[in-house]
Amino acid sequence: MIVILTTIILLLLLLLFQQYLSKRRLGKNLRYISNKIKLLISNKSSERILLMTEDKQLRELLMKINQLLDYHQEYLADNARMRMSLNRMLTNISHDLKTPLTVVLGYLENIQYDNDYTPEERNALLAKVSVKVIDVASLINKFFDLAKLESGDWKLDSKRIHINEVCRKVVVGYYDTLINKGFDVEINIPKEALYLYGDEDALIRILNNLLSNAICYGKDGKFVGLTVVADNETVTIEVLDKGKGIPHSKQDRIFERLYTVKDSKTEFAEGSGLGLTISKRLTEQMEGKIEFSSVPYSRTAFILTFKNA
């Protein structure tokens, strides 16, 4: 009987000792994890917490903590990109406003103080002032349009849109400009009526942005095309040109807010960088997708895809 009691007591003591060791290891591991987290956060490190343990619950906790650290790093990266975007925005907006306004002030000073101008010359200068003022107003309107889109204040009026008619109407508005500039124009719009659900004004805005982009920055290729195709599920609108295109290394950034592409030799630039961003936001609000591909002097295309209505 004494032997049995002794054995039981020894087993209990052994169990208590194992629990003590386990608790001690757990406390040590938790202190290590806590100190490591503080260090990673203070150093803004992307390192992960590695710990060898047989404790299943502790392993699960480490997995969740590492996932949280991943999220923290993504948050920091997003903030860094946002700051860079904001700085770029301020630089671009400042430049794009300052340049035409400086020109306008120069013209106005000439008109005001130079009495040698003939009425015809004054009218020509006033016409140039008007063009520059319209450019500034357009830039400001784009900026506020993007602000409304990103804040959710721009509400679209979705309805069934006759895509064929919308595309024809937009192309007609550019046809004289294209012909006068010596562009070859290729339009492929099927006779069969095609529809999608969306905001007609928004779709017109998107197509205007893409066609203006093709005319301005694809001018070396002297070609602009618009094609509409559909299947049972989707409708695709493609706007393309054969100009210098955009370098492959920069193609994944062209839809970023106020991102511009510049060529040091030609000063090729995507204006203020607002038009394509607005087009992307509007397309996404209509549950569509916009894609881009570019092979210089062969085929630069923006492809819109929407659900077939």
Results as ranks from 00 to 15, higher is better:
residue 218 G to E: 06
residue 45 S to M: 08
residue 222 K to Q: 01
residue 169 K to A: 04
residue 261 V to I: 10
residue 102 T to L: 09
residue 205 R to K: 15
residue 2 I to N: 14
residue 114 D to G: 05
residue 150 E to D: 08
residue 241 D to W: 06
residue 196 L to Q: 00
residue 269 A to S: 15
residue 13 L to H: 09
residue 109 E to F: 12
residue 193 A to Y: 09
residue 225 G to M: 02
residue 67 Q to E: 13
residue 88 R to D: 03
residue 130 S to A: 07
residue 289 K to Q: 15
residue 213 N to Q: 03
residue 128 K to V: 07
residue 143 F to I: 13
residue 236 T to N: 09
residue 305 T to E: 06
residue 75 Y to M: 00
residue 285 Q to P: 12
residue 196 L to S: 00
residue 64 K to G: 02
residue 307 K to H: 07
residue 245 G to Q: 06
residue 159 K to D: 07
residue 162 H to N: 04
residue 110 N to Q: 09
residue 99 T to K: 03
residue 154 W to A: 15
residue 23 K to A: 08
residue 245 G to T: 08
residue 3 V to T: 10
residue 267 E to D: 10
residue 290 I to F: 02
residue 119 P to G: 06
residue 176 D to C: 06
residue 152 G to V: 02
residue 250 K to M: 06
residue 92 N to H: 01
residue 97 L to W: 01
residue 275 G to D: 05
residue 244 K to Y: 04
residue 219 K to D: 13
residue 261 V to Y: 15
residue 122 R to Y: 05
residue 296 P to K: 05
residue 60 E to C: 05
residue 112 Q to V: 09
residue 44 K to Q: 11
residue 55 D to S: 07
residue 167 C to I: 03
residue 69 L to H: 01
residue 184 D to R: 13
residue 174 Y to I: 03
residue 60 E to Q: 11
residue 38 K to F: 07
residue 276 L to I: 00
residue 70 D to K: 04
residue 44 K to C: 02
residue 214 A to D: 05
residue 10 L to T: 14
residue 43 N to R: 11
residue 205 R to T: 08
residue 20 Y to G: 06
residue 10 L to H: 13
residue 282 L to D: 00
residue 187 I to R: 07
residue 128 K to N: 08
residue 19 Q to I: 11
residue 59 R to E: 12
residue 75 Y to T: 05
residue 145 D to M: 07
residue 287 E to L: 09
residue 111 I to A: 01
residue 202 A to I: 03
residue 184 D to N: 10
residue 270 E to D: 14
residue 114 D to M: 10
residue 266 T to S: 00
residue 272 S to D: 10
residue 187 I to M: 13
residue 138 S to A: 01
residue 298 S to N: 14
residue 48 R to S: 11
residue 279 S to Q: 04
residue 38 K to L: 12
residue 166 V to P: 00
residue 219 K to R: 14
residue 148 K to H: 08
residue 270 E to K: 08
residue 182 G to I: 00
